[in-house]
Design a binder for these strands. Sequence first.
DNA 1: CGCTTTGTTGACACTCGTCAAACTAAGTGG
DNA 2: CCACTTAGTTTGACGAGTGTCAACAAAGCG
Lengths: 222, 222
Amino acid sequence: MFAHVNVRPATMPSILGGLTARHANCITSEFHYRKGSEIYGEKEPAEYVYQVVSGAVRSYKLLSDGRRQIGAFHLVGDIFGLENAETHRFTAEAVVDTDVRLIRRMSLERVADSDFALARNLLIMTTSNLQHAEDHMLLLGRKTALERVAAFLLEMDRRLTGVGVVALPMCRRDIADYLGLTLETVSRALSKLHGYGAVDFLGSNQREIMLIDRDQLSRLDN
Amino acid sequence: MFAHVNVRPATMPSILGGLTARHANCITSEFHYRKGSEIYGEKEPAEYVYQVVSGAVRSYKLLSDGRRQIGAFHLVGDIFGLENAETHRFTAEAVVDTDVRLIRRMSLERVADSDFALARNLLIMTTSNLQHAEDHMLLLGRKTALERVAAFLLEMDRRLTGVGVVALPMCRRDIADYLGLTLETVSRALSKLHGYGAVDFLGSNQREIMLIDRDQLSRLDN
DNA sequence: CGCTTTGTTGACACTCGTCAAACTAAGTGG
DNA sequence: CCACTTAGTTTGACGAGTGTCAACAAAGCG
C-alpha cells in the first residue's frame, strides 16, 4: 500500500515559507507515525509545528460521548499543528503510516516580533485554515449527504492530484466524521454516485482508486 | 448614503488594539445601517474593516438555491470584515438597526510589514475567528438540535452579558441558519427547554428577554 | 486458510424538515 | 383610535432523509 509514494523534499513547499530553520532558530527533524497513532492530543501544549512528508493526518474534536468531528485532513506538503495559543485545539492522528517533519515552535510573540515575513506567513496560513473552516461550516450546516460526498471527492481530487483520479488514504468512517454523516450514508452516497456515472472504481483493493467526473460532481455540489 | 458619518473618540475597546488611526494611517468614522441592510457582499472588494458600536450583524454564505449558512454574529465591540485577501468571504447584514465604525483597510502586505504589534493583532483576531469556526464545525457536524440551541443560548449569554439574562437581537430564522436547522426546529427546541425549566421568557414582546439556567444548559451542551 | 477489519446493502426507526394553520406583536393608513 | 396588513412565532400533522442495527461480502493479514 502506498508503495510508490516517493518523497522529494526539494519539490515540496518548504515549511513556513522557507524561513524555519534559519529564522526560528530551531531544529527540523523527520519522524514516522504508524497508522492510527496519535501525533498530539487536544489541549496538549503545542511544542511543534508539523508538515506531512508522506501519508495523511486527521485533526478532530470529540464530544464527551465519543461523537467525533474531523475538522481537516492534512495531506502531503500540508502544515498542521500551527497554534498561536499554547495548546492544540485538535487531536491529530496518522490516517496511514505517515512521515512528518517537525519544527520546534517559538512563542508567537517572539516570532511575530522578530521577523516580518514570518509573521506574514503565519497570518496567511491561519487565514487559509480559516477559509477552509468557513467553507466547511456551509457544507456541514446546509448541504445534503450527496452534496457533501461530491464536495469531498472534488476537494480530495484538487488537493491530491487534480486530474480526476483519486486514491483516498482514509476509511469511510473518517470521511463520515469529516462530513458530519455516518459511514453507511457515505457508502450509500458513493454507490449512488457510481450509479450516476459520476464515480468509477478501479481495482478492487480496499483503498480503491476512483475515477471522478468533475463536471458531474460540480453540478451536485452547488 | 454616508449621511451620518461622525468621527468620535473611542469609548469602547478601540479597533485593532488601539493602533488603527495612528498606525494604519486611515480614517475611522461611524455609519448607521438599518435593520436588514447589507454592509458588504460576498466577493466584494474588502475596503474597510468594521467594528459594531451598537446593534448586531450577521455574516453568511449562500448556496445557489438560497440555502443560507450564517457563520457568525457580530455583537457590540466585535470587529468584522477583516480579510487579508482582497475580497470578502461572507455577506454581512445588519440584524437590527446598527452603528458601525469603519476603518479603511490597508493591504495586508503593507500592514504586516510596517508594524509588528499590528501584525500580531491581526493574527490574534484571525485565530480567534478560526477557533470559533472550529468549534462551530463540531456543533454543525455532530450535535443534536437541542444541543445546538443550548450551546447557542450559552454563547449569546457569554457574549452579551454573562449573567444568565439574554435579549436576542436576531429572529428565529437567523438562529436556525446559524445552527444549521429550520426555524421550526429552533422554536420547538426552545419550547422544550422552557418545559425543562432551562429557559424562562420575560415580557411578551417579540424580542423576548430570556432567563437561562446555565448549569442545565451546559449539561445538554456536552 | 481462518480471522479480523472494512465496506456494502437492506430493513426499520427517528430526528428533523415541510407544509399548514393559528396566534401575537408591530406597523400603517383612514 | 381602530381595522387592516405584515412579519414573526408557535404548534400540529406528516413525510423525507439520515441514523441505527444487522447481515453479508470483500479485503487485508497472520
